[in-house]
Design a protein around this nucleic acid. Structure first.
Lengths: 145, 145
DNA sequence: AATTAATATTCATTTAATATGAATTAAATA
DNA sequence: TATTTAATTCATATTAAATGAATATTAATT
């Protein structure tokens, strides 16, 4: 089983943004600190912003920031918004070709398992990822709070 | 999130084998009925057999059959054996490059969520997938029991 | 108004995982 | 011994995902 890097990067962006004390930060800097693709990150940020987790502004002194405090950003909501589970298995997809789909009980179990997966994230917020804030700042080369 | 077709196919093989009343069946026939790759299916069967779910024999009158009755084949065990979760997210992999891994709390949550996913399958056996046996037989073009 | 700095958008390319195909080898049975 | 089947190996194709690059749009500063 695999989680897309899209979700992975989404969490990294949120963690980075949570370290900025409300000040906007730039996609370019985030990409540089994590050494990942700025292009890809741009799409991740766009997603997070259209889902309401981030607020972005263009132009000089622009950038992105958390729309809400970390305690109010539920990780289950983030995962559900960033993972596309429409094709987790072939039978989830309307275009699936598995012959036995009409008589197959496995699909229900897959849905149940996926829900259980998300339910774990539902129990955490971004704040739960920030408990080692000091170390995170150091690793990412940010000023101590 | 995505499950590999390897696991998907594994379930299909087990379902097919469970419909054979203990008689061996051939990989080639399974591949034909599901219209999927025989080569790939061979690897899936090899895995299931090395994990003890199937018993195979070569040569004339050979084939594969369930090693145990369906009620004794736990789906959680099957999923754990067929899914490679070593790289579910980058930080699960020893070769992962994510900078913040040492200070990141997300990994624990991912592990917890993965375990919750498997735990759902733990509650079912192959027998739970066979409740629509009549329909499955018809779709797969097998003789009624 | 012009310039600069940022996100937004689009498209092309690359990459890596996955799946498939094909051919050969080994084992079992008639 | 011939035949049938799984096991094994290697090459190829396919696909989704990720990356790169270029352009457009927006907004703040000078």
């Amino acid at each position: 089983m695999r989680v897309t890097t899209h979700s992975d990067y989404a969490l990294r962006v949120l963690i980075f943004a949570a370290l900025q004390d409300g000040k906007p930060c730039r996609i370019e800097d985030i990409a540089a600190r994590y050494r990942i693709s700025k292009s890809h990150l741009t799409k991740v940020v766009w997603n997070l912003s259209s889902e309401g987790f981030l607020t972005t502004s263009r132009g000089r002194a622009g950038g992105l920031r958390l729309s809400r405090p970390p305690e109010e950003i539920n990780l289950g909501a983030v995962m559900r918004a960033t993972e596309d589970n429409g094709a987790m298995v072939e039978c989830f997809d309307a275009k699936g070709l598995c012959a036995i789909t009409p008589a197959c009980k496995a699909r229900r179990i897959f849905r149940e398992a996926l829900e259980a997966f998300h339910a774990v994230f539902d129990r955490y917020t971004l704040a739960d990822l920030m408990t080692r804030e000091r170390d995170l700042r150091e690793i990412l080369g940010l000023e101590p709070a």
